[in-house]
Simulated assay, not measured.
Amino acid sequence: ALAAVRGHEAVVRLLLDRGAEPDASTGRERLTALMCAAANGHAGVARLLLDRGAAVDAASRDGYTALMLAAGYGRLETVGILLGAGASVAAATQTGWTALMSAAGSGHAAVVDRLITAGADVNAWTRDSGTTPLLCAVGNGHAAVVRLLLARGANAALADSAGVTAAALARRLEHAEIARLLAAETTAAAGRRPLPQPDPVDPGRGFAH
């Protein structure tokens, strides 16, 4: 795993040629070489490990996959390689944390866009705190990611388990630009609501007198 951490592709290749197990994990966190390469953005090493049979959706002790780690550190090229190898954008930890939350909370807009395009759920929420990708972005002040998530269908009305919405969180943290974005989205959402329609007329009942 150390060679993968440091991006030494030739060393990783040599170790694999000599029988090293591509999915061997190390340390208390049970990180695989693929996870280490993904977190550090070593795209060539990640591709090599996948070619040699590394499990793309293997999870660490805490349930983190290589895709979650690459997304959280903004490794766009590696994210693309993992997705191309079939990595699941729906994979989640036991609490429901996803790769999209990792990218959104870290402010990596390009990765957020790539994950959503690949089918990531913009309104996924964690089971422990009820956080969403939008709340992750708001909480860390990433206005560009907030704007992107809203444009891609994030529901600004969703609240966490304490009842805090994205707008309330932005106001609490004094993220003025984000608060304005969310206020505009609330206004736009209200305008998108369909007008109430009259009950259909039943011709057989005649007119009311």
Rank of each mutant, 00 (worst) to 15 (best):
L2P: 07
L2I: 06
A3L: 01
R6M: 06
G7L: 00
A10H: 11
V11P: 06
V12W: 04
V12Y: 03
L14Q: 08
L14S: 11
L16M: 09
D17Y: 10
E21M: 02
P22S: 03
P22G: 11
P22K: 03
D23F: 02
D23L: 09
A24F: 01
S25C: 11
T26I: 07
G27A: 12
G27I: 07
G27D: 03
R28I: 15
R28L: 15
R30G: 11
R30S: 12
R30T: 05
L31G: 06
T32G: 14
T32K: 07
A33P: 00
M35S: 07
M35E: 10
C36T: 07
C36E: 12
A37N: 04
G44T: 04
V45W: 13
R47N: 05
L48Y: 08
L48Q: 01
D51L: 09
V56G: 00
V56F: 00
D57N: 14
R61S: 04
R61W: 11
D62A: 13
G63V: 08
Y64H: 11
T65F: 07
A66Q: 04
A66M: 05
L69F: 09
A71S: 11
R75V: 05
L76V: 05
E77N: 12
T78D: 11
T78F: 08
G84N: 14
A85M: 10
A87C: 03
S88E: 12
S88R: 09
S88W: 08
V89N: 04
A90W: 01
A92T: 06
Q94G: 15
Q94M: 14
G96S: 03
T98R: 10
L100N: 01
S102A: 14
S102P: 08
A103C: 08
A104F: 02
S106P: 13
G107N: 00
G107F: 08
A109E: 06
V112Q: 01
V112R: 10
L115M: 00
L115S: 00
T117Q: 02
G119S: 06
A120F: 01
V122H: 02
T126H: 14
D128N: 09
S129M: 07
T132L: 01
A137M: 03
A137W: 02
G139Y: 02
G141F: 08
A143R: 10
A144M: 13
A144E: 04
V145I: 08
L148K: 06
L150C: 01
A151F: 04
A151H: 09
A151P: 11
G153M: 06
A154H: 02
N155M: 03
N155C: 15
A159F: 01
A159M: 10
G163H: 06
A166M: 03
A166Y: 02
A168K: 11
L169F: 01
L169I: 10
A170W: 01
A170S: 02
A170P: 00
R172T: 15
R172H: 13
E174L: 04
H175R: 15
A176C: 14
A176W: 00
E177W: 01
L181I: 14
T186R: 13
T187F: 14
A188S: 07
A189W: 08
G191S: 13
R192K: 12
P196I: 10
P196L: 15
P196S: 15
Q197N: 12
Q197S: 12
P200A: 13
P200H: 12
P200L: 10
V201M: 03
R205C: 14
F207T: 15
A208K: 14
A208L: 12
A208C: 11
H209F: 05
